[in-house]
Design a protein around this nucleic acid. Structure first.
Lengths: 118, 118
DNA sequence: CTCCTTACTTCCCAATAGATAGTAATCCTC
DNA sequence: GAGGATTACTATCTATTGGGAAGTAAGGAG
């Protein structure tokens, strides 16, 4: 049973209650987070484009999701003070790196949804 | 922009609001679901063992998670009417199949948690 | 001065998460 | 045979989160 310490040799374990892994998993293992990160795989996107891409997301929930991902360092928010206002969201290198497992999860869902009775 | 239909040639898209993919993604892209499925990778487990493995989960939330995963066909619930009562949870073949993307997500988190400021 | 666009906030309610405590069945101990 | 132990839940209550609808701000066009 691994503990989660902050020493020289860190043993991180998502199964440990106090490990920061838990918070990270909670952030990423989320419908909208997975979709936002996937949408930005193709390149930087503006708020409106994301909202259209993620059909059915409300502006409030999209803002929340973007802020959380930005605060954790998964994406950058750039404001272009043009008129009308222009805000662009782009993946950081950390964000790029997490697209791999998230894309696999999304494609798994699309490929197996027929086998799932809901 | 792909639609999500139920015809001869299905085009499933997690980005489509009405696609059942959304519900499946919502079920799987969840902290406790990812941890439960990961815990069962090693083989069938009983309720108590799962509760100890997933440190910090309450019995109510664990039951909810198990029921949802069972209803969707990711795991089987077997009751052994021994004394004391004995209930075993095991992955179905569908459940086995989804362990792959979920394990990748969990290990990504454990490997990159140091780079994330929370 | 009003309309339009973009990108959000604010407000409110409903659904979910989570902690704590209790239940049921059956044996084992004293 | 009363009380405790064990396993797997259920019930209850509260706090947090999710989500929809509407409102706000900034600035240019007409």
């Amino acid at each position: 049973m691994m503990r989660c310490e902050s020493g020289e040799h860190d043993h991180h374990d998502v199964y440990s209650a106090l490990c920061p892994c838990r918070d990270v998993l909670d952030l990423l293992a989320n419908k909208w987070s997975a979709l936002v990160i996937g949408a930005l795989e193709a390149g930087p996107q503006r708020f409106g484009a994301l909202q259209r891409h993620l059909q059915g997301v409300s502006p409030k929930v999209l803002t929340q999701t973007l802020r959380r991902l930005e605060d954790a360092g998964f994406l950058d928010r750039t404001i272009y003070p043009a008129v009308p206002l222009h805000v662009e969201y782009a993946l950081t290198s950390l964000g790029q790196s997490v697209t791999v497992p998230l894309a696999l999860l999304r494609t798994w869902v699309e490929q197996h949804v027929d086998q799932i009775k809901l």
